[in-house]
Write a protein that binds this DNA or RNA. Structure first.
Lengths: 335, 335
DNA sequence: CTGAAAGCGCTTACAG
DNA sequence: CTGAAAGCGCTTACAG
């Protein structure tokens, strides 16, 4: 850490013997200038920047040319609501447009409010929100009122947001039909106790229940804490007969993986004595032993959705859109 | 998303019938003014802000009062090098100083360079770097040359950085002694194939080997990919006799947890037929079944270190410091 | 107790 | 082909 004052564009200009305007044009490439600086001038400027260790001041640039060049991803912590595919695709596409990606994490209402102040303060041209459905309604509305385009992964949201909607229903019906066919007489559904917005988890539960009903079963409901915890998993298993007639569907793959691991450790054969399925199709599910039967998006590709969001950032007249990602039943070994 | 031009301080001032200076002083609280505005004026200003939906423009503020009020955490993705304790402690302490926390994630050299440009551009008053040891030397040097204080979790680094150093040696000796005592004749060490900076993982391996040697054993080395993968775990297990005479030490808790789960799924009793230990003491290790024997920091508390970093951000004359976190042997059920 | 004004480091029409 | 100058939205000495 050196504490000498940082070089500015003016310093570079002086050293290169040109005006700051020229430095700025050369730096940005974006010549709306009729003609670019001569190659020699350019070289002199580059050399000067190099020699001084010049770095453009982000705040000054952002202040002048309003779009900040930043796309922000807002996630919850410690609950990992991040799809790694989504992250890397955002970084790719943003990078291609010379935008930076920054991540903001909130853990409670207070920190969320602080992060939103940053966003409203101009630290984002576009916002991607994970875990919207767990936020309080008031928060959701505040997100929708943001002066930048917002993309959320959610089935329901206030108007004004672009949405990635998951269509679980058909896949769930397939899942329950599959479980029946393979001999399950009883079905259990393990879901988290909602933290903030109980309504949404309840909706999800309703969809599950309904899908089960269509295939002629009534699932037994189990509620656990959000973070998958082996002790709780054990307690659930203790209440289920493991004679091969039962199946457990978990609200998340992570829960299902924990449950399967705990089950097998307890000597319960999966899927022989107990079938277990998850929801979400996280990458890890394909690697576990037994591999996890689940419902979810087969090949998560959000590129077109992200592209839409970035387009909206550049052209505010583009209306928000809803994207439907069809979920499928992915039969693997655990059920 | 609404696209009307955002209200500025001038708008608020006009509506409240005061000058922008007054608005600014009221907003920041930091009255270096002899006297604060009268309560009625304050109220008028707050009302005006409310009515207009005013939000201070972050870039303009940052441009004027140099410290940006942001502490940045730089992490690698998809490899999670984040300690959740560290994150929440950073957010807490930064929040107490009215600073915001943003996260930057890099996946390769190109994205890292882009993120560093943001940081150098003033998007951070202080930087916390996870996974420094896996970066190329040149990158480490660039981090050390940053004009803001940097804190890294690493045992070695170029001068100029504040460091959290982990002292594994004594704990590892304890671990190997413990394994011997409980009947392990052979010891295996499972480590990742280094991605970028091979030197560091090799150093870690050397420390492990040395600690083992002190207790009179020579560990068998197994190399796997970084992400814990059940298939590879299975392959390793196939090469180890599971007659209760062997112990496996993994470079990370996550690897150890995967290995233990795969082992038990394969009918190998842990610790009866095979002892398994990890490194790092992640929270999950205490919850798995069997709970994970490991070495690491018993109660991760980085508050004083983070405090030091934030102090440096406020007072550049404070020298970087190195903090030693003593690792301990944490005996649980798996070994 | 409050306002007018300078200036942070950039960008970009505009005038040579 | 290049420079002088205005201005982005704030903060903060300074003068009333």
């Amino acid at each position: 850490m050196t504490s000498q004052p940082r070089p500015t564009q003016a310093d570079v200009a002086r050293l290169a013997g040109v005006s700051t305007a020229t430095v700025s044009y050369i730096l940005s490439g974006r010549s709306s200038r009729s003609t670019p600086a001569s190659p020699e001038t350019q070289q002199r400027v580059f050399d000067a920047m190099e020699q001084l260790g010049y770095n453009p001041q982000w705040a000054a640039r952002a202040l002048k040319r309003r779009p900040s060049g930043i796309v922000t991803v807002l996630t919850h912590v410690p609950l990992p609501t991040l799809s790694s595919e989504l992250i890397s695709q955002v970084q790719d596409l943003a990078g291609a447009r010379e935008m930076e990606t920054v991540f903001l994490q909130y853990s409670d209402d207070a920190s969320l409010a602080r992060q939103l102040r940053l966003v409203r303060g101009g630290l984002a041209d576009a916002l991607i929100v994970m875990g919207l459905e767990n936020m309080a309604e008031a928060t959701q509305s505040r997100l929708a009122a943001l002066p930048i385009p917002v993309l959320a992964v959610a089935n329901e949201a206030p108007p004004g947001l672009s949405l990635i909607r998951r269509h679980e229903r058909a896949a769930l019906i397939d899942l329950f039909a599959h479980l029946r066919r393979s001999g399950s007489q009883g079905v259990h559904y393990v879901t988290a106790t909602p933290r903030v917005n109980r309504r949404v988890l309840d909706r999800r539960t309703a969809v599950v229940t309904e899908a089960a009903a269509i295939t002629g079963v009534v699932p037994v409901l189990h509620r656990v804490a959000v973070a998958p915890d082996p002790v709780q998993a054990r307690a659930i298993l203790d209440g289920i007969s493991v004679d091969g007639t039962q199946a457990v569907v978990c609200q998340s793959d992570r829960m299902a993986i924990t449950l399967a691991c705990v089950a097998r450790n307890a000597g319960i054969a999966v899927p022989g004595a107990l079938r277990i399925a998850g929801m979400g199709n996280i990458a890890e599910g394909a690697l576990t032993q037994p591999s996890l039967t689940t419902v979810g998006v087969r090949d998560p590709d959000y590129r077109s959705v992200i592209g839409h969001l970035l387009d909206r950032a550049e052209d505010p007249t583009i209306a928000p859109e809803t994207f439907d990602t069809p979920w499928e039943l992915l039969v693997r070994d655990s059920a």
